[in-house]
């Protein structure tokens, strides 16, 4: 019998990819509006989120911030409705799990690569036409807080560790991919927990926070970005942080598999 999970992987990549495509289109329109209004009003758009250097942040950067929530949401949808769709088409929960994992990994790499290409094209056009817009990269230190745990948490949800693509494309794409994949797993966990335990699934939100927070701290230390004051380690090799994040993600995936292994499909 032919293996089924590669089919699921391909379908999950394409279906989630088509959602991502729509989402990236919207982000492109926003980027266009930002550039236009920056030119028209001749007032430098300074998003309150960014430093006072002014200018419009790049497409890559806007995508970087918005993708996290996007991935969290599609992770939830995957566990809540995609799983039952597959089981009712005769696909085992195991094949769904493996296929989704592989398909989403592909997506997590594709989004930043596509974002980087689009971003480069926009910058190229802006420079070519000599459009007077200031394109600024994000400032990685924006999630600096004063040791307030809740503020830390919220900031680590909005701003994940950031690497400026102009300094290293490959690393920037890699960090982007890890970030969004972590968010997907967090959403997947929440969706799976609610499907499995009903309202008690609410506990999973805390677990999802923990995952995002640890990933944030690990990568931030390695990139030399500010971390909460209670973290005393100031240096960690990037390889260590990446492996640590992978191990953590693997543990969470294992939890998701445990919860969905015998899950009842509602009808």
């Amino acid at each position: 019998m032919p293996r089924i999970y590669p089919k699921v992987a391909k379908d999950m990549f394409l279906v989630q990819g088509s959602w991502a495509f729509g989402f990236m289109e919207v982000m492109l329109i926003i980027q266009f509006v930002k550039i236009m209004s920056s030119i028209l009003s001749d007032v430098k758009i300074v998003s309150s989120l960014f430093k006072e250097s002014g200018g419009v942040n790049t497409y890559f950067d806007s995508l970087f911030i918005a993708s996290n929530i996007f991935m969290l949401v599609i992770g939830i949808i995957s566990a809540v409705s995609v799983l039952s769709h597959y089981v009712s088409n005769g696909v085992t929960r195991k094949d769904y799990f493996k296929g989704t994992l592989i398909g989403t990994l592909g997506l997590a790499i594709t989004i930043p690569v596509a974002g980087a290409i689009i971003s480069a094209v926009i910058t190229f056009i802006v420079n070519l036409l000599n459009i007077p817009v200031n394109m600024n990269p994000l400032d990685g230190s924006m999630n600096e807080t004063e040791g307030h745990l809740i503020a830390d948490l919220i900031l680590s949800i909005i701003f994940t560790p950031y690497e400026d693509p102009s300094s290293s494309w490959l690393l920037a794409i890699f960090i982007f991919a890890i970030n969004i994949f972590t968010y997907y797993v967090a959403g997947w966990l929440i969706g799976a927990a609610f499907s499995r335990f009903g309202i008690f699934g609410i506990v999973s939100i805390v677990l999802a926070f923990v995952l995002i927070y640890i990933e944030d701290i690990l990568i931030s230390i390695s990139l030399g970005l500010p971390v909460p004051s209670f973290i005393t380690i100031t240096e960690l090799p990037l390889a260590f942080s990446v492996i640590g994040t992978f191990v953590l993600i693997a543990i969470y995936c294992w939890l998701i598999r445990l919860m969905t292994k015998k899950i009842i499909v509602k009808y």
Partner: peptide
């Protein structure tokens, strides 16, 4: 249950 050959 969870038997790919049968579920299909």
């Amino acid at each position: 249950f969870e038997n790919a050959k049968i579920m299909q």
